Simulated assay, not measured.
Amino acid sequence: MKKLIVVAFVVLSTLFVEAQVKTPQASPLSKVEQTVGLTNVQVEYSRPSAKGRTVYGDLVPFGKNWRTGANANTTIYFSDDVTFNGKTLPKGKYALFTTPKADSWDIIFYTDTNNWGLPEKWDESKVALKTSVKPETLSKSVESFTIEINNLTNDGASLDLAWERTKVSVPFTVPTKEMAMASIEKVLAGPSANDFYSAASYYYQSNQDLTKALSWVNSAVSMTPAGQSAPFWYLRLKSLIQAKLGDKKGAIETAKYSLEGAQKAGNADYEKMNRESIAEWSK
Rank of each mutant, 00 (worst) to 15 (best):
N218E: 15
W66Q: 03
T35E: 14
V187Q: 15
Y203A: 10
K31E: 15
V82P: 11
I184Q: 08
E18V: 10
L161S: 02
S139L: 07
A182P: 01
N151M: 03
V11Q: 05
A268Y: 04
K212D: 12
Y202W: 03
L118P: 07
G52A: 06
K93T: 14
S49K: 12
V10E: 04
E120N: 12
V6M: 09
V133L: 04
T88I: 11
N150S: 15
N71Q: 13
M1A: 14
Q263T: 14
V174W: 08
T113R: 04
P225L: 01
S206M: 10
M179I: 13
R275Q: 15
Q208G: 08
K64Q: 14
K264A: 14
K140W: 04
L38K: 07
K244N: 13
Q42P: 02
D195R: 04
V11Y: 08
I76T: 08
S144V: 11
S27T: 09
E280V: 06
E148D: 15
P61V: 09
K3P: 00
D209M: 08
N65S: 10
T111S: 15
D247T: 07
V41G: 01
I107A: 02
L188A: 09
K212I: 09
V21S: 11
S132P: 01
F97G: 02
K93A: 03
T111L: 03
E260G: 01
N154L: 11
Y204S: 08
G227S: 03
Y197N: 09
L235E: 11
E276P: 00
S139H: 05
E280H: 10
P90T: 01
Y197A: 13
Q208D: 13
Q34H: 05
F16P: 00
E18T: 07
A70T: 02
P191C: 02
L129A: 05
E124Q: 13
S229M: 12
V41F: 09
W216G: 00
K22E: 11
K256R: 12
S79P: 05
F9E: 01
R53C: 05
K272F: 07
K87T: 10
E164H: 08
D103T: 12
A262D: 09
R67C: 04
P119S: 05
Q42T: 14
K249N: 13
L118K: 09
D103K: 02
D58G: 01
D81K: 03
Y77R: 10
E253I: 04
E18C: 11
Y270H: 08
K126C: 01
K212A: 12
P171G: 02
A157W: 12
V217N: 02
G261E: 10
T254V: 03
A19N: 14
K264L: 13
E44K: 11
K93M: 07
W122I: 03
E253N: 12
S46I: 00
K283W: 05
G266S: 05
P28L: 08
G86P: 07
L4V: 06
R67V: 05
I76K: 01
L259N: 06
K64D: 05
A262Y: 03
L159P: 03
T131Q: 10
K212L: 15
N154H: 06
Q228K: 14
N73D: 14
K244F: 02
P119Y: 07
A230N: 10
Q263A: 12
E120Q: 15
S125Q: 06
V217T: 01
A8F: 13
E178T: 11
S239H: 02
Q228G: 02
K31M: 14
A19H: 15
K3G: 01
S49P: 00
I184K: 14
D209V: 00
